[in-house]
Design a binder for these strands. Structure first.
Lengths: 220, 220
DNA sequence: GTCTATACGGCGATAGAC
DNA sequence: GTCTATCGCCGTATAGAC
């Protein structure tokens, strides 16, 4: 068997150090196969790196998958929470969350299914998620994160501008409408017979219609 | 090592033949671990059955997991589609879907995460889902399944009783609001600090509020 | 830091007695 | 139909040269 050098001379090594390339490759592989279904060797191949290096930089598959999960969660949750806890109007928040969430998820469509699947199968992920969202203290994260929005919704209800609704229900309704179509993308494409282009059009339509749909539901 | 009989004499063997007990145990194990994460031995232990019997009744892990998936999908989708394609009013359909979906998912809370995870990780699942929903012919399933609802929504819009909305968007919005909270249950319990009781209360509140929330969003 | 070679265990699957 | 025993592979992880 003739050995062929892994990196051909005319193909320059991709930028970024080895550790970073491993992490990016792991991100893609864990994303499409899940942690249990992913293979370290597949990650190494996708990164263009010797399999032993995965253990050199990350001691084990568990640690590598944890690093991937933390990074993925970190780029999804804080941005949304920042919008919801800002001092803008409710309608502005809704529009921004829809816009931000749908554009973000259009870039990484399998992120929701991955995160939900991880949280469902591995109990450790819940704690890891909290460290991302709250920055270390896992106690009473919920109340703190929602207090701003909750008082705002109460004030709007008293003023007669909005129907009364708990902050938890508000957020879950909004995130459901934004995230579920991506988490359920394989189901929707199967049932509705969508290809990639038509799915994109489907999402574009939601970007237009969701804010008014949601805000109308809240009107008194 | 002293051997202990697997079934103690005072504990009667659970009803149902062996094959059925394996399928039920497999359902629970695949549900909480996913197909890739589940272990045949764990299923055998949970079923109280010798591990070799799993291969006697179902030739392989793949076939067993397929049987579980088909049964799970079969008890979730047809009922909803029947409601949406009936000849009732739109508001009646919405109320029934919310009621049926939320009560069903309260019994088997991890069903959504399981089905979405399976569809995301295994391409075969999409075809298997279609055989459940359409009963064999995987072509043009979407159009047929939605045609009744679509014309109804168009008629309501022409009559000025409803805002115009595509049937796909209608269904996705409705299912999002019903299913997502269960698919994202670990995330919500972590972020909001919910225990099982408070999650049940959270769902009960949605059962009351979702139909009017959804129908208000559709009003002209 | 990167490579080759290999140890080690776990898991799916089968053979064959009963 | 059910059991025990075991095979063979695959995947993680490590040892050790370079």
């Amino acid at each position: 068997m003739i050995k062929v050098p892994r990196s051909l001379p005319d193909v320059p090594v991709p930028e970024g150090d080895t550790q970073h390339r491993i992490l990016d490759a792991a991100h893609r592989v864990f994303m499409r196969s899940g942690t249990a279904g992913a293979r370290m060797q597949e990650i190494a191949r996708e990164a263009g790196v010797n399999p032993a290096l995965l253990h050199y930089y990350f001691r084990s598959k568990a640690r590598l998958s944890e690093a991937v999960f933390l990074r993925a969660a970190g780029q999804l949750f804080p941005a949304i929470l920042a919008i919801l806890n800002s001092d803008q109007s409710v309608s502005a928040k809704v529009e921004q969350v829809v816009e931000k969430e749908l554009s973000k998820l259009s870039e990484t469509p399998y992120l929701p299914a991955y995160i939900l699947s991880e949280l469902a199968h591995d109990p450790n992920r819940m704690r890891q998620l909290l460290t991302v969202v709250t920055g270390q203290h896992p106690s009473k994260a919920g109340q703190r994160l929602l207090s701003g929005l909750d008082s705002q919704l109460k004030a709007e209800a008293r003023a007669g501008r909005l129907r009364p609704i708990a902050a938890e229900q508000f957020i879950v309704n909004l995130l459901s409408l934004c995230i579920f179509p991506f988490a359920a993308r394989p189901m929707l494409t199967a049932l509705f017979g969508l290809n990639d282009d038509r799915f994109s059009a489907f999402i574009a339509e939601r970007r237009r219609s969701l804010p008014s749909f949601f805000l109308r539901a809240l009107q008194p």
